[in-house]
């Protein structure tokens, strides 16, 4: 595995690793890690450092839904311009072009089911390219980004053993 790939894999696992930590783990100089990360950021390969939050454990309303959009592709650019239009909304967290039974998948977040449903009804469904929508609310997040969101974090080993 190349050093760049190792860095990316470490950071995608834990964005809190400092460049110094990474240098130690990979056995390279910190300056090398600094410059490689700067390059990866510059090239847009590293897009953002973020945090995986389990909102269900936080005392605040949080709802997300996966919206299937069937749309009419445009003669000039297919799905491109529609996808870009959909992704403009702050409510839309994620947009993918999909294979299979529908075309675009949008993940929409909000505070209540009502709020998300109304956003779809008022903003996405009426778009002239959109043929139909189907809204699937997320009821429980079990696992995300390789993290088990159900279990409690605990180490069930004895503290000491030979």
């Amino acid at each position: 595995m190349s050093t760049d790939k190792k860095i990316l894999s470490l950071l995608s696992d834990n964005a809190k690793y400092t460049n110094e930590d990474i240098a130690r783990m990979l056995g390279v100089k910190k300056e090398e890690v600094d410059s490689r990360i700067a390059d990866l950021e510059g090239q847009g390969i590293i897009r953002k450092y973020t945090t995986l939050v389990d909102w269900s454990r936080f005392d605040d309303a949080y709802v997300s839904a996966l919206i299937e959009l069937r749309v009419t592709p445009q003669p000039s650019d297919g799905f491109e311009s529609i996808a870009r239009k959909v992704m403009k909304y702050d409510e839309v967290e994620t947009v993918y072009l999909m294979s299979g039974g529908y075309d675009l998948c949008a993940i929409v977040t909000g505070h209540t089911f009502q709020e998300v449903a109304m956003f779809v009804a008022k903003e996405l469904a009426p778009m002239k390219e959109v043929i139909s929508t189907a809204t699937h609310f997320v009821l429980k997040r079990y696992k995300e980004l390789n993290v088990d969101l159900c279990g409690n974090i605990s180490d069930d080993r004895e503290k000491m053993s030979f």
Partner: peptide, 11 residues
């Protein structure tokens, strides 16, 4: 509040 590095088994 002990931080152990005493375990002889994989995590």
């Amino acid at each position: 509040n002990v931080i152990s590095l005493g375990v002889g088994e994989p995590d």
